[in-house]
Computed example of a mutant assay.
Amino acid sequence: MSTDPSKIFRRYLSAGVINALATAEAAGLNATDYYALNLLDLSGPLTSGDLAAGTGLTTGATTRLIDRLEKGGLVRRATDPADRRKVIVESVARPEGLEQVLAGTRRRLGEVFEGMTEGDRAVLFRYFTQAADAYQAATEELHHPRTP
């Protein structure tokens, strides 16, 4: 196993991505649908435009995404009470069997966290918070590059 910090970090990121893809498949979802449901779970209801921005999908692809999730009974569309022209997408159910699919990952990560001191966990979760913000900012830059 490599001791190169860059490779260790890339291996960590790759393992997380591969696990998410396998989780989506085991839950009977495609990766984009799984990601969109996670985004709704983290954020709460979103406009279809915000869901498009959060997933990086075009508005047409987002409409098809919402259609699939709505047909599966996982989300519903509602009219934004503040602006009836906007559609709000809200999660109404979790995919059947998702908790069972996630159980192994949660157990294994729980074992990792249990083996850490409280201080180590505090550093790790501070990193997670700051890294998530950095990734979101970097993604925004990729979606909307600034020209010099």
Rank of each mutant, 00 (worst) to 15 (best):
P145H: 12
A24Q: 05
T139I: 12
G97E: 08
M116T: 09
E111W: 03
A122Q: 14
G44Y: 07
V101A: 06
D41L: 13
L109G: 00
T117L: 09
R64Y: 06
A122G: 02
T105K: 07
L102G: 01
I66L: 03
L42H: 06
D67A: 10
V92H: 04
T47E: 03
G104N: 10
A61C: 04
Y12N: 12
A22C: 07
H143Y: 06
L142G: 05
G104Y: 04
R11K: 09
T117Q: 12
A26F: 01
P95G: 09
H143F: 07
H144A: 11
T47W: 01
S14K: 14
L65K: 04
R94Q: 13
T3M: 14
L124I: 05
P45D: 10
A52H: 06
M1I: 02
F113G: 01
R107L: 15
F113T: 04
G60W: 11
I18M: 03
A52R: 07
T105P: 00
S2H: 11
M1G: 14
V123N: 12
S6L: 15
S91H: 00
T55W: 05
G28E: 04
A53I: 05
S48A: 13
A78V: 10
T59P: 04
S6F: 12
V17A: 12
G119F: 01
E96T: 03
R85C: 02
A53N: 07
G49M: 02
V17D: 06
G97L: 08
A36G: 01
Q100C: 00
Y35I: 04
L51T: 02
Y12V: 14
G56Y: 05
A122P: 00
P45M: 09
V92D: 05
A138F: 03
T3S: 13
V123D: 14
G119S: 10
T147L: 14
R107G: 01
T32E: 13
E111C: 02
A82L: 11
V17N: 03
A103P: 02
L142H: 11
V89I: 15
V87A: 14
T59G: 07
A31W: 11
R64A: 08
A82Y: 06
S6M: 12
R146K: 13
G44T: 10
P45I: 06
R108H: 03
D4N: 15
R107E: 15
T32W: 11
V101H: 05
R76E: 15
L69C: 09
Q100E: 15
A132F: 10
N19W: 04
L13S: 08
V75P: 02
V89L: 08
S2R: 12
E118W: 02
L40A: 02
R126A: 05
D83F: 02
D80A: 10
T79G: 03
R108V: 09
L69M: 14
E114Y: 09
T62R: 10
K7F: 02
G54A: 12
V101S: 07
L65R: 05
Q130A: 12
G115E: 11
T147M: 10
S91D: 00
L98E: 10
P45W: 09
F9V: 10
G44W: 09
A31C: 06
E118V: 07
R68I: 00
S91C: 01
S2E: 10
A103D: 11
K86Q: 15
Y12S: 15
G72I: 00
E25H: 06
G56H: 06
R11H: 08
D133H: 13
L109Q: 09
P148D: 15
E140N: 03
D50R: 15
